[in-house]
């Protein structure tokens, strides 16, 4: 894979001719070799239409294209960075958590509202983000940002996982998500607030959770 975890907060991407990397703008820390950085409006294959849709959904995070021959180090805001290697599956991640990803991955957006009904709406309210989530599919590496680092929780048909929406980072695999609330939880945090729900993920896959209830 083209991404290497250098420290808990720094990722190295090797760039070679024909291998494009996309990254959040401003996330380049240093580079060696001959590398160029180009602001990208579309962030790759999404196309202008996709980009407009995402802007409406307030999900557009400015990306740039990284090309050339060399090595680039990425990091952002002193947050922890976590490398996820994909081999054919799809990663669902909010775009402001994307530090960098390989151009070999197909980028798209998904309307979360279509999956699990009100979940997307509520999550939009909770996280202040849109109903859209970025999807990355194929073979390649993704570097994801999280507050305090992430841990992976396996989801199996026998064991669903409930996640505080603020601590949710990303998920992969064949997962269904819906809103749930545990006994006593709504009474505790107050009715009517978005926080009175948890994300329930069921099926087969992995969910990435950060060690904090704070959004980036």
């Amino acid at each position: 894979m083209a991404f290497t975890q250098l420290t808990s907060k720094m990722v190295r991407a090797d760039v070679a001719p024909g291998q494009v990397v996309f990254s959040q703008r401003g996330a380049m820390l240093a580079y060696t070799g001959q590398v160029t950085f180009t602001p990208s409006i579309t962030g790759g294959q999404g196309g202008l239409g996709s980009m407009l849709g995402r802007r409406i959904a307030h999900e557009a995070v400015p990306l740039m294209t990284v090309e050339g021959h060399g090595a680039v180090m990425f990091g952002h805001g002193g947050h922890h960075a976590h490398v996820v290697d994909l081999s054919g599956e799809t990663l669902y991640v909010e775009s402001d958590r994307l530090l960098a990803f390989e151009g070999s991955l197909e980028q798209g957006t998904m309307f979360m509202g279509s999956q699990g009904g009100v979940m997307g709406v509520i999550r939009g309210q909770v996280t202040g983000q849109g109903l859209f989530t970025t999807t990355l599919t194929g073979y390649g590496s993704v570097a994801v940002l999280a507050h305090g680092g992430v841990f992976e929780l396996p989801v199996t048909p026998q064991a669903a996982v409930h996640v505080d929406p603020q601590a949710y980072v990303a998920h992969r695999g064949d997962l269904r998500n819906r809103l749930s609330t545990a006994v006593g939880w709504r009474e505790m945090v107050g009715r009517g607030s978005g926080e009175s729900f948890q994300l329930e993920l069921s099926g087969s896959g992995t969910v990435y959770v950060q060690a904090s209830e704070e959004k980036l």
């Binding site: 305090g148 680092g149 841990f151 929780l153 064991a159 669903a160 996982v161 409930h162 996640v163 505080d164 601590a167 545990a182 006994v183 006593g184 939880w185 009474e187 505790m188 945090v189 926080e195 969910v207 959770v209 950060q210 060690a211 904090s212 209830e213």
Partner: peptide
């Protein structure tokens, strides 16, 4: 940075709002 507590029908007291995820079945009381 994450505390995991395995519960078998017993209880813990925790700071409100500090739960980030759980598996199984849990009830919460303020």
């Amino acid at each position: 940075r994450v505390l995991a507590v395995d519960l078998t029908d017993d209880a813990v007291k925790a700071r409100n709002g500090s739960m980030v995820a759980y598996t199984g079945k849990m009830t919460f009381k303020r």
